[in-house]
Amino acid sequence: MTIFLPVAGVSIDLFLLVGVGALVGFLSGLFGVGGGFLLTPILMMVGIPPTVAAASDSCQIVGASASGAAAHFRLGNVDLKLGSILLVGGLVGAAIGVQIIKILRSLGNADFVIVVTYIVVLGSIGSYMFVESLQSLRRGTMTGKPHSSAKRGSLLAKLPLQMSFPRSGVQHSVFVPFLLCTLVGILAAIMGVGGGFIMVPMMVYLLRMPMHVAVGTDLFQILFTCAGVTFMQAVTNHTVDIVLAILLMVGSTIGAQIGARAGKRLRGDQLKILLASIVLLVMVKMAVGLVLTPSSLLSYAKGH
């Protein structure tokens, strides 16, 4: 059964879109990632113009993260206090990142920098998570538990505006989550994704948050970030296809619910090793794509 997408201007199989949405929604609910780094390339592969794919993807992430965040909120996995600081930091970082991209584009090597950034960031995070989770699984310890008692570096502990985050069971200076999230926001803007797959590992390893709370809190901040992006894309680029977004949402919201429940049944280490595997797979795919000779030396600069 085919359906016509009015903004994309293409006709596509309805069940294919719902299925793709369900798969990405499942990952979203399971790991707290928006899924943009997976969904946009898949949509482009099935014939959606790149600009419409990216913008509509943001719109569906609003639905998926709303569903996932609400499910995690009921399970007590959303740290609203920390999430709000992360949100502000992420937005500041995104604004800085957009300016960096502008400068890189004017210099002419933006695409190369973007792809290399992708590979370095994904490779580093994925490898670290994978090795750490594997060691943890072998030891049979539960690292998904709060690490509030861990001795953090004396330098971080001496920073001003120390704040307690009871839901996450950690204490940090406001500057720590804010600056970390600003850095993630910069990377996310350069890489053109929501940043969930960077944010969750950052929360777990640097902020020492429990995995499940990191996932719920990340979904909370993704909801607001992607709502802003969707509105801006609709106003400035006219590339949000609501029909496409709704179909993806139908799949992804259900997938996110199932993912959130499945996540509850898995240990933090198991979640981390799964996410690490996906991150590494995407990284390998990108690295291979960089080296292989493309089927065509031309690609559409805007849509189609």
């Binding site: 719109c59 569906q60 609003v62 639905g63 998926a64 993260s65 709303a66 569903s67 996932g68 609400a70 499910a71 909801l223 709502a227 969707t230 509105f231 609709a234 949000v240 609501i242 977004a245 709704i246 949402m249 139908v250 919201t253 259900i254 996110a256 619910q257």
Partner: peptide
Amino acid sequence: CVLIAMVAGFGID
């Protein structure tokens, strides 16, 4: 677009 997405997400939840 934002409103529909949010309503859909919370509704499904």
